[in-house]
Amino acid sequence: MKVLWAPWRMEHVLGTTARAQGCLFEPPDTAVQDKSQLLLFRDELTVVLLNRFPYANGHLLLAPRRHLADLTELTPQENSRLMAMLAACCTILRRHLHPDGINIGLNLGAAAGAGIADHLHFHFVPRWQDDHNFMTVCAEVRTIPQHIERTFDLLAPDFLDLMPAPAP
């Protein structure tokens, strides 16, 4: 018998994870990147995080910086930047994790499945052919093949490359 270990998920499974102060999509400070927060990227309009409780390796979250709940509240500039970041996130995931596909989802409202309904955010879930993950189906447990901090280290340099060069 093979044993699959994912001990960092136990607090989430038991519901004993400490609640973060403030909004997940509004990490403290002004850092562009912060491994302790799983913050891969932050600019003036968007934020990209690794999901701390992922459905699959490389599960990203993309949100506007501004705290809003619905697509209809986005400015044209925010909307345009989010679309550009959707493409950039796909490119980075494909470059480093080589998925055969990527699910991109947006749940608007709690009734639609949004766990954090008051801050609009997209999910990116990399998928691999024939990796249907029997554990999720049989035991409602997810197995993630790479530690989340290793995934952060793998993706982080490419997200830093998205930052504009400082003005002279």
Rank of each mutant, 00 (worst) to 15 (best):
V32F: 09
V32K: 14
V32M: 09
V32G: 08
Q33V: 08
Q33T: 10
Q33W: 09
Q33F: 03
Q33I: 01
Q33L: 04
Q33S: 15
D34K: 12
K35H: 11
K35S: 06
K35C: 08
K35L: 08
S36T: 14
S36R: 13
S36G: 10
Q37I: 06
Q37K: 14
Q37N: 07
Q37S: 14
Q37R: 15
Q37V: 02
Q37Y: 10
L38S: 07
L38D: 01
L38V: 05
L38M: 15
L39T: 04
L39H: 08
L39R: 10
L39I: 09
L39C: 12
L39S: 03
L40A: 05
L40M: 13
F41I: 08
F41N: 02
F41S: 05
F41Y: 15
F41M: 10
R42I: 09
R42L: 12
R42W: 10
R42M: 11
R42E: 11
R42F: 11
D43W: 05
D43V: 09
D43H: 13
E44R: 14
E44I: 04
L45K: 14
L45D: 06
T46K: 05
T46H: 03
T46F: 01
T46N: 13
T46D: 09
T46C: 15
T46M: 09
V47E: 01
V47Q: 00
V47K: 02
V47I: 11
V48E: 09
V48K: 04
V48N: 05
V48H: 10
L49R: 10
L49N: 07
L49F: 13
L49V: 12
L49I: 12
L50R: 07
L50F: 07
L50W: 11
L50K: 08
L50H: 01
L50N: 08
N51G: 12
N51S: 12
N51P: 08
N51A: 12
R52T: 06
R52L: 14
R52H: 13
R52N: 14
R52D: 08
R52C: 04
R52M: 08
F53Y: 15
P54T: 01
P54H: 05
P54G: 00
P54Y: 07
P54V: 04
Y55C: 07
Y55N: 10
A56N: 15
A56F: 04
A56G: 04
A56D: 12
A56S: 15
N57R: 14
N57F: 00
G58A: 13
G58M: 11
G58N: 04
H59K: 07
H59F: 04
H59T: 01
L60I: 06
L60Y: 04
L60T: 02
L61Q: 00
L61V: 03
L61Y: 03
L61P: 00
L61A: 00
L62M: 11
L62W: 00
L62E: 05
L62T: 01
L62A: 11
A63E: 02
A63G: 06
A63V: 03
P64Y: 00
P64H: 08
P64R: 05
P64C: 11
P64K: 06
P64T: 10
P64W: 03
